[in-house]
């Protein structure tokens, strides 16, 4: 059995490996919700291929817009897959740190009572 420190490091490395492989191998097809949006907006047949230039969000009516720093897990076209790897690595590490930080903070708040 491995100790906590080894477990965290191994878990993080495996997660980073999965994320890095995903940059190269992940499918570019729309996800289930986007495909449904394409179907109900008449851009796609239920079982047919997705259109190259389809826009699932055309069906939305909301006007709220937010510009994220790394949209679509990338740093823009010119950074290519390097940007994709950076985005995934940053995201995976931030996720681990935030969840760990929140967990310790909640634990501390309990102990201080």
């Amino acid at each position: 059995m491995i100790d906590n420190k080894t477990f965290i490091i191994a878990g993080l490395l495996i997660s980073l490996l999965i994320g890095t492989v995903a940059v190269f191998l992940a499918s570019g097809d729309p996800d289930g919700l986007e495909s449904t949006a394409l179907v109900v907006s008449g851009q796609k047949e239920l079982a047919g291929p997705s259109p190259e230039e389809g826009d699932p969000e055309v069906i939305g009516t909301g006007s709220f817009a937010y510009e994220s720093p790394m949209p679509d897990y990338s740093l823009g076209e010119e950074m290519g897959s390097t940007g994709g790897i950076i985005a995934i690595v940053v995201g995976t590490i931030i996720t681990m740190l935030i969840v760990m930080g929140a967990s310790y903070a909640i634990r501390l708040s309990k102990n201080s009572q």
């Binding site: 477990f7 965290i8 878990g11 993080l12 495996i14 997660s15 980073l16 999965i18 994320g19 492989v21 995903a22 940059v23 191998l25 992940a26 499918s27 570019g28 097809d29 996800d31 897990y73 995934i88 995201g91 995976t92 590490i93 996720t95 681990m96 935030i98 969840v99 760990m100 967990s103």
Partner: peptide
Amino acid sequence: IAVLAAGIFALQSFNL
């Protein structure tokens, strides 16, 4: 919980 969160984040980027 930290490893699960990191793994879930990474796997959510892997569209099959």
